[in-house]
Design a binder for these strands. Structure first.
Length: 275
DNA sequence: TGCCAGGCCCTCTTTAGGGCCTT
């Protein structure tokens, strides 16, 4: 006879016991099956965007930087004689600059050092087909599955990148997942907090402050895309073992990332998207 | 003219407010 394989709703027994960073996570039905099927990510692509403003300004990307690092280098960090963590093997690095059509907010221009005038003076093209092809080819060179990593990425970098891609009718390769180091690190600290409550006051989890706290040093080239990716890689590396565990349960499918805003469609420039 | 992010977290909380975090 026919055996009816009813899909069983997730029960508390299905919730991962390890790592504890997820003890307080609120599970959504949408996230659950994806988590169960998530294969081990091979490559971690750390990324950062500089853009014309914050989400309320409907920003456009002006600079993007990506460092591709294999999980092996994150699992086996190297230190120099003094014990200082060394930047892991960066397999490929891509930094692109583009002239946005949207005006920079004064604050965005101030902190990034980018401006519409300067990018136009340098005859820089916008976020176009050539950018998308470069991104795709860059990702194609990395062993999959790929996990994108960004700080506050769920609320900023990933939705904005999705918006810019959507504007040109493009998207990233299927199967890509993404991780946000901001909630991941907060979650990790929360788990251990009860034992060290009095030791630190309120901690800032901005990328710059994490870097200062972990390395007792000033981040270099802050608010350049490449400088911030460097800081992000080092911050990740400092807690790589824990964060790599979090990926299995905290990562989201790229397909589930909602665009930051609905873009006005733009004519594709910079050539066709066909490979 | 009037609009102007938003999800998460903490707390003097849950009938709420405010700060963080990203540019």
């Amino acid at each position: 006879g026919l055996i009816w394989m009813s899909p069983r709703p997730p029960s508390s027994e299905d919730w991962p016991k390890e790592p504890e960073c997820l003890a307080r996570r609120k599970w959504s039905l949408a996230a659950f099956p994806a988590m169960a099927e998530l294969p081990t990510c091979e490559t971690f692509v750390f990324l950062d965007l500089e853009a014309t403003g914050l989400p309320n300004a409907h920003p456009e990307i002006a600079e993007i930087s990506l460092f591709a690092i294999h999980r092996f280098s994150l699992e086996h960090p190297e230190r120099d004689e003094s014990g200082t963590l060394q930047l892991p093997r960066v397999l490929d690095k891509l930094t692109l600059c583009m002239c946005p059509e949207q005006n920079f907010t004064p604050k965005a221009s101030e902190i990034t050092g980018l401006s519409n005038q300067n990018l136009a003076d340098n005859h820089k093209a916008g976020f176009n087909g050539a950018v998308i092809r470069a991104l795709r080819e860059f990702l194609k060179r990395q062993k999959s599955p790929i996990c994108l990593v960004a700080h506050n990425g769920f609320d900023y970098d990933f939705p904005l990148l999705r918006t810019e891609l959507q504007r040109l009718g493009a998207d990233l390769p299927g199967g890509t997942v993404c991780l946000d180091t901001l909630p991941a690190l907060r979650g990790l600290d929360k788990v251990h907090h009860h034992s060290t409550r009095a030791s630190h006051g309120k901690k800032s989890y901005s990328l710059g402050n994490l870097y200062r706290r972990y390395f007792d040093d000033e981040p270099q080239a802050a608010h350049s895309a490449e400088g911030d990716v460097y800081a992000l890689v080092m911050v990740f590396l400092h807690r790589a073992q824990e964060l790599l565990q979090c990926v299995q349960t905290e990562a989201q499918n790229w397909d589930e990332i909602q665009p930051m805003y609905t873009p006005r469609k733009r004519r594709l420039s910079g050539g066709s998207l066909d490979a």
